[in-house]
Design a protein around this nucleic acid. Sequence first.
DNA 1: CAGATAATCAACGCGATGTCCATTAAATTT
DNA 2: AAATTTAATGGACATCGCGTTGATTATCTG
Lengths: 202, 202
Amino acid sequence: MSQDSPIDRRITRTKAAIREALAACVNEAGFDDLSVKDITSRAGINRGTFYLHYHDKSELMQQIQAEVILEIERIILASAPMRLADLADRVTPLPVVVCLFSYLRENAALINALLKQKGDVAFHSQIRCALERNLREVGFLAGTEPEQFQVPANYLISYVLSAHLGVLQEWLQTGCRESPEEMARILTKLSLDGPVRTMATG
Amino acid sequence: MSQDSPIDRRITRTKAAIREALAACVNEAGFDDLSVKDITSRAGINRGTFYLHYHDKSELMQQIQAEVILEIERIILASAPMRLADLADRVTPLPVVVCLFSYLRENAALINALLKQKGDVAFHSQIRCALERNLREVGFLAGTEPEQFQVPANYLISYVLSAHLGVLQEWLQTGCRESPEEMARILTKLSLDGPVRTMATG
DNA sequence: CAGATAATCAACGCGATGTCCATTAAATTT
DNA sequence: AAATTTAATGGACATCGCGTTGATTATCTG
């Protein structure tokens, strides 16, 4: 029901322990100077066991990233398809965004760990691919011709994606003090009116 | 005239070689799997010489980051102090921004290398500190009370900073095809009208 | 229960690290 | 120009983390 390939409970337990240990270790010690031994000893497993499931640290990151992105895509696809008009009409944030922030808060430690790492295996770029694909299939970019944008499409995507991930990371690193609804409102406000207008009082 | 502490030309040469080698190596092989030997052999110096100037790879990154940030601050301070009104009035981008993009393009390889790395020593966070400090001293945040913003100030800063760095990185990684003036226009447009409105045709 | 297989433990070669020293080369100072 | 200072070199060293292997034990599935 939940998984297909790993039937054995031992694998499930081990992978879960590694996953949790990774989040904890990265958040308290960073990723660069983080050895496999750090992760496994934190997870309470043998170092050799790690290599039974992953070739190295990078592959571990990539697999967990893929899992998280899959989960995010499921949340997005589960909601009603959004259109540009929906955003422009409402002042209240989209329900999807609220759902996303709820999920992200539940897995705050892990997500924060993934966002911290921007080296060779970048969560950022993987999300960008997923986002760009979804934009083409589902919504925005399909409706409007990218050539008619007032700025090149790639820069628009970079702008939005980086901005949102930056706000998300700030939220996670400051302990998720605001509610998911408030965060959705903030992002909607910023993207609709732009940061300069948002800075104006009132 | 140019430097004060390192009088010896050999130090200058060595550091410049390391700096250039770092940019080249990171851009073609990434930062995580990059050894000191890779850098030094590329720079044409002995491996031991590296440790005469830096304790390790992280310190190298931090020092170069500090140098670049200093240079950026000099460019900003050399221009007229900007105000919120200047941004809202003009459609044409600020000259400072154009100057900045020119400098960034001249050092494209190095800047791109710094932006790629988001691990323990993050260019991102260092720039954020510098930006926040400048905003308080020089411009925006000094004029307007942060409490009156429509969203918390820290999220606004995160939004703008991440968005701009994201666009900058996209520009650098795609070979700086657009001119500095065009990039300044794009960023001004996006921040003034917001990404959603910018997406509208016309 | 029996068979399958995941996890453990110890050990291995390998490469990178950071440090040290004697020597050489190049800078600055007199 | 000579003398002095000091950066750079090349080699060596112990240490550490990596990724792998094989034999053994523990645990799961059917």
